[in-house]
Design a protein around this nucleic acid. Sequence first.
RNA 1: GGAGAGAUGCCUGAGUGGCCGAAAGGAACAGUUUGCUAAACUGUCGUACGGGUAACUGUACCGAGGGUUCGAAUCCCUCUCUCUCCGCCA
Length: 425
Amino acid sequence: MLQIQQLRDEKERIILGLEKKFVLNASEQVEKAILLDNERKEIQSNLNKFQEEVNKLSAEVGQLMKSGQKEQAEAIKLQVAGKKGEIKTLEEKTAVLEDSLFNALVVLPNVPHVSVPNGRTPEENELVESWGESKNMPEGSLPHWDLIAKYDIIDFENGNKVSGAGFPFYKGKGAKLQRALINFFLDEAEKAGYNEMQPPIVINKESGYGTGQLPDKDGQMYHIQEDGLYMIPTAEVPITNYFRDTILKETELPKKCVGYTPCFRREAGSWGAHVRGLNRLHQFDKVEIVQIAHPDQSYLILEDMRKYVQGLLEKLNLPYRVLRLCGGDMSQTSALTYDMEVYSGAQARWLEVSSVSNFETFQSNRLKLRAKSEETKKTFLLHTLNGSALALPRIVAALLENNQTPEGIRIPDVLVPYTRFEWIN
RNA sequence: GGAGAGAUGCCUGAGUGGCCGAAAGGAACAGUUUGCUAAACUGUCGUACGGGUAACUGUACCGAGGGUUCGAAUCCCUCUCUCUCCGCCA
């Protein structure tokens, strides 16, 4: 959520940014929020004056009672009682205004970074770099869903029976490959200085708001109504919320965390073409990296995280490209997002395998995630960043497709110590 | 799930209606001194929203939300959470 102070201080930049994300009536929405806040301030300072008077008078009553001047005390009591109605009214007005202001702010998306390209559709994303040869596979190459069936490593039919579409069983070498990838990703992250965490996979409403999944993506999360809990769509949510309501020391920064969790997405409405096999699931595994950074360093750290993810893809020998998402293709909460896409030769298309983002203060504002400056002794909001490192299903799909041979599927060298087999055949 | 106890600042913990935004101790930070793998002393040490260039100042916050009262950390109600014992259990 944007801060009202940002709207005041950088109105023009905010409005332009919102327009880059195609927010309707951006200028009017910003103006409306500022007006609401002006009104709020006025009423609040009015209320504070009344409260000050009441506090002073009440203190006098105390003094008078002590010195036994009962009658004067009674007179002042009446005075105070007269102001109570006014205070009540002002309090109610303040509450209503605060609520309206919140509602006006919470619907605004984050403002994109200056480097974010203009554009509305995925085609307008900017190609930043690419690695490896993205060639189409030779004649007779199979897409991963056929390979899965051929080697019997993932079972969609029984997943369908037991849970529903999008909840497959991984079997035999398919299951071991999952385990290998998770361990490989966690070990790599640890080497890069990330602290491993195993977070809860259900979260409460407050956490959903903290990282911005609520109210925006309400329908995308599985909701356990009876307990008021949501199943996490990504480990970003519990790990970032771990730092909710905290004031860190500058010397502790940056905080680097990594966690593996299953992720759950309802993906309501987006079922259809292009989602065969592993391309889109309701439950999938992902290793997520999260950093809490000083505002001065967050963009350097973002580059660092991006390079880290690219390094993983290179170790797995998967050809990829890096895109800087355009305004229209970015999420509500992000200020700058890089997508990593791996080329699937057999499907002849790019598959998004990772998304690395800087949220600046958009999440930390709601999270109340701050640090205290050593010099000024003031608190300030920190920047939050995260990225998939990596999400399994599409990595598995790409590995299967790109490494298929007549003899079977070749496991990349770096994974063999984890799988303890070299071929799926 | 049953019974009881509790929730105070970074931590421990005092505070049962006005003198409490809150004692004391610890931790941390700064300074002084003695000196050397530290000690002693002194000082600083919550957050948010307003006003002010600033010093400073007003208000709110003692788990959350309501209530009583001229006045609430302190009394009442509701909720949440924690702990202990019992039950159940991976």
